[in-house]
Simulated assay, not measured.
Amino acid sequence: MKIGFIGCGNMASAMIGGILKKGIVKKEEIIVSNLTEAGSRRSREKLGVETTMDNRQVVTQAEIVFLAVKPQFYEEVLTEIKDLLTEKHILVGIAPGKTLKWLEDTCGCPVKTVRLMPNTPAQVGAGMTAGCCNDRVTEEEAQKIREIAESFGRFEFIPERLMDAFSAVCGCSPAYVFMFIEAMADAAVAQGLPRSQAYSFAAQAVMGSAKMVLETGRHPAELKDMVCSPAGSTIEGVRILEDKGMRSAVFEALTGAAEKGKRL
């Protein structure tokens, strides 16, 4: 089964890297389209896959077609390729706000359609991706999509009505986590740590804390309480974060991101 990507930016490159690393298909079984010859050259040199500047060539050669362009270009690309889509194709959208119904309606024909929402940690093989399929996708095909998505991180199928919520908590939140790491590092620098060490220490603390949540199965509040000694420095920091409205700020940020996603 040949896999095609229309567009080959950072996210598509991360996905392709995972696919190749896991050996799901060979390099010769992936084709990507780029807008420029320079982009095609980068894809060939970095990934070793077949490249083209013709989106229609991707559709004629591949059975699974990923739309890896920015959301505002989806309609233009689908208008360009829709007459080539057949019942053998699986069309995969990875943009927020582009529903299964929107994708199928824009194609103007019955087509196997999948929505995936990967996040940027896919670039280091630690992504969290959610997906949903229309009823034309078979169980075997859905499992193939799962295999592809799990090549660059964790994956779960969820109901489409939850995709905007997922996008906020996983698609958008890396930006907020990066801000948190930067803020912690700035505070560490103010206390005398060299900046390079401050970033490394803060990032490792966040990664280790997340790993504890995933691997222990304990409630985050329980894990937090384990760190807070009576009358200690950690509980003092917690008091200040609560006073500054940390929980409310995070809640409002993710709610706002989810609502914005519904309007895209």
Rank of each mutant, 00 (worst) to 15 (best):
1 M>P: 06
2 K>N: 13
3 I>Q: 01
7 G>E: 06
9 G>F: 05
10 N>T: 08
12 A>H: 09
13 S>G: 12
14 A>V: 00
15 M>A: 09
15 M>N: 12
17 G>D: 00
18 G>T: 11
20 L>H: 09
25 V>T: 07
26 K>E: 14
27 K>T: 07
27 K>V: 00
27 K>W: 09
30 I>F: 13
32 V>T: 10
35 L>P: 00
38 A>S: 14
44 R>F: 07
44 R>T: 12
48 G>K: 03
50 E>R: 15
51 T>F: 04
55 N>P: 00
55 N>H: 11
56 R>K: 14
58 V>Y: 00
63 E>M: 10
65 V>D: 07
67 L>T: 02
70 K>P: 02
72 Q>G: 13
74 Y>V: 15
84 L>A: 13
84 L>Q: 14
84 L>K: 12
85 L>W: 01
87 E>M: 10
88 K>N: 15
89 H>T: 07
91 L>Q: 07
91 L>H: 02
94 I>R: 08
97 G>W: 12
103 L>G: 10
103 L>Q: 08
106 T>E: 11
108 G>R: 10
109 C>K: 15
109 C>L: 15
113 T>P: 03
114 V>F: 03
115 R>D: 01
123 Q>S: 11
124 V>C: 03
128 M>P: 01
128 M>T: 13
134 N>R: 07
134 N>C: 10
141 E>Q: 15
142 A>S: 11
144 K>F: 11
146 R>F: 04
146 R>L: 09
147 E>P: 01
149 A>W: 00
152 F>Y: 14
154 R>M: 13
154 R>E: 08
164 D>V: 03
165 A>Q: 04
167 S>V: 07
169 V>L: 06
172 C>E: 11
179 M>C: 14
181 I>W: 09
183 A>E: 06
184 M>Y: 05
186 D>P: 01
189 V>K: 13
190 A>N: 15
190 A>I: 10
193 L>S: 04
193 L>W: 07
197 Q>C: 02
197 Q>K: 13
201 F>M: 12
205 A>Y: 08
205 A>T: 15
209 S>C: 09
210 A>D: 02
212 M>N: 06
213 V>L: 15
214 L>H: 05
215 E>Q: 13
223 L>P: 08
230 P>C: 10
232 G>L: 03
235 I>V: 15
235 I>W: 05
236 E>K: 14
243 D>Q: 15
248 S>G: 13
248 S>C: 14
249 A>L: 03
249 A>R: 08
253 A>W: 13
261 G>L: 04
